[in-house]
């Protein structure tokens, strides 16, 4: 991973862009950088933790599944935080050139199943959906572009 922090010039917008490889150590480094950036931007610890979880589910899925096993690849993770009047707005976008995959169009897991029938597949995206305010996917120029956003409200 080569972190390339680039603080935008606009006073209250901060952005982090990094390239992440597929191995577990690089994924952990990327998640650490995301969490640190969120804390720097004024997120409370539980808020940063929630977004780290969202990032873990998305980034791990790309690292593991976007390309055939063994292919050495990289993908981009962008994080933009903005202090808005109504709170701290966070947008995270991943861009990868792996096989087309629309995370917004996956069957939801059966969360009412009993213990014996419960499976773990699909839980990651369920957590992403429930812990963010919006999700957007596009396949553009041979790339998956997936972004999620979340507003952490602040008292005026």
């Amino acid at each position: 991973m080569r972190p390339r922090p680039s603080r935008c010039s606009a006073a209250e917008v901060a952005a982090l862009r990094l390239l992440c490889g597929r191995d577990a150590a690089e994924v952990t480094q990327a998640l650490d950088a995301i969490e640190a950036h969120l804390l720097d931007a004024g997120a409370a610890a539980p808020e940063a933790m929630q977004l780290r979880l969202v990032a873990e589910e998305i980034v791990t899925n790309i690292a593991r599944c976007a390309w055939p096993e063994g292919d050495v690849r990289q993908f981009a993770v962008e994080l933009a935080t903005e202090a808005r009047p109504d709170g701290l707005h966070v947008r995270m976008t991943t861009v990868d050139d792996g096989m087309p995959f629309d995370p917004t169009n996956q069957p939801p897991p059966d969360i009412d199943a009993g213990l014996d029938e419960r499976e773990v597949g699909g839980l990651g995206m369920l957590l992403v959906r429930e812990m963010t305010d919006g999700q957007h996917y596009a396949r553009e120029g041979g790339q998956n572009r997936f972004s999620v956003e979340r507003l952490f409200p602040r008292a005026a």
Binding site: P109, D112, A113, R118, L127
Partner: peptide, 8 residues
């Protein structure tokens, strides 16, 4: 969210 609080 995952419904695990109902099976565990």
């Amino acid at each position: 969210i995952s419904g695990f609080d109902r099976v565990v």
